[in-house]
């Protein structure tokens, strides 16, 4: 009886491992879609193509939410990893926040449709690139947390690097915006959009910091 339970427990574990991997896949794909959507917006404006990317991100965020709830319920209902489940829960919820940031940022583009002067395109592009890189690296660090705890720090330091680079670009971009001839209202609006994107690496860095602590706790 106990043995049967154990065998089925391995089966359940396998399914849950798959769901966590799916969740991380969704986050990674969402980051890539965000990058494409910003590129489309900068090159073509708020076109149908951009709206399609926004809908894709929307759907992915909903799917990830569903997965997150399923993972959390199973962790607690089946009393799995009692020592680390609080940390895993925190990690999944914080990663989910990144999906929300991607989605809300694209919605802001869709609703406000800011007119971004061409001279700022390169920096917007670079900032987006840093933001997406930070999330991609954070996904690798999170996967390492589950499978290869020693490798977490190898990825984490890169997240910090991308966050710092993103900060440099966003500061440079904000300075350029406010020293331009634009109206103050447009300057403020553009500043908000820089911050929308810059929030992503900032949050990724916070998650990486927590991940570092979770890893220390798990080193037995």
């Amino acid at each position: 009886m106990e043995l049967t339970k154990k065998i089925s427990m391995f089966g359940r574990t396998h399914a849950l491992e798959g769901e966590i991997d799916d969740f991380l896949d969704k986050l990674s794909q969402c980051a890539l879609l965000f990058k494409i959507a910003i590129k489309v917006y900068l090159n073509e404006g708020c076109t149908d193509e951009f709206e399609r990317k926004l809908q894709d991100v929307n759907k992915m965020e909903s799917d990830a939410d569903y997965l997150r709830r399923a993972i959390e319920t199973q962790l607690y209902a089946q009393t799995l990893i009692p020592e680390s489940r609080g940390d895993v829960l925190g990690l999944i919820e914080n990663l989910d926040q990144l999906l929300n940031l991607f989605e809300s940022s694209l919605w802001a583009f869709s609703i406000e449709q800011p007119d971004i002067p061409e001279e700022f395109h390169n920096d917007f592009d670079a900032l987006t690139d840093m933001a997406v890189q930070s999330v991609e690296t954070l996904v690798l660090a999170s996967r390492a947390f589950f499978r290869n705890i020693d490798a977490v720090s190898d990825h984490n330091h890169k997240v910090m690097f991308y966050e710092k680079e993103a900060d440099k670009v966003s500061t440079k971009l904000k300075k350029a915006i406010f020293s331009s001839e634009l109206d103050l209202s447009r300057k403020s609006q553009l500043r908000n959009f820089v911050e929308h994107i810059d929030n992503v690496p900032d949050w990724a860095e916070d998650v990486a910091d927590r991940l570092a602590i979770y890893s220390i706790k798990r080193t037995f």
């Binding site: 391995f10 990893i81 895993v88």
Partner: peptide, 24 residues
């Protein structure tokens, strides 16, 4: 145990399941 676990690189959940069985 530390050497084996760092070599086989089990998923956190798999390690948990194996540990339960091991403790039993």
């Amino acid at each position: 145990t530390a050497a084996v676990l760092s070599r086989v690189k089990l998923h956190l959940l798999r390690t948990d399941a194996c540990t339960r069985l091991g403790l039993l």
